[in-house]
């Protein structure tokens, strides 16, 4: 039996190893993208809820201001 060429073996390892690493990471990237789209579509972040509530508060303030202004105006007249 002839001696196996270790360098050729090394290159085989390299091809297989790098191939697997990249394959794994590419699948991982793909599934990460899919996961984030699904999550953003069906389970929106709670932070999104915060913004409307603050804007509602702002609206409330405006409404309150308008009402007080209206009352003040009414009393004056």
């Amino acid at each position: 039996m002839t001696e196996t060429n270790l360098i050729v073996e090394g290159f085989k390892f390299m091809g297989l190893g790098m191939g697997t690493v990249f394959l794994f990471l590419i699948i991982m990237i793909g599934s990460m993208n899919i996961m984030s789209t699904i999550i953003h579509k069906f389970f929106p972040e709670p932070q999104v809820d915060n913004n409307p509530s603050t804007s509602v508060q702002k609206d409330n303030k405006n409404v309150v201001a308008a009402i007080t202004a209206a009352i003040a105006h009414h009393r004056q007249s």
Binding site: L6, I7, E9, G10, F11, F13, M14, G17, M18, V21
Partner: peptide, 13 residues
């Protein structure tokens, strides 16, 4: 990770 497999070739060489 190329560092790993590149060195593998180097070591067997």
């Amino acid at each position: 990770q190329f560092g790993i497999f590149g060195t593998l070739v180097g070591a067997v060489a």
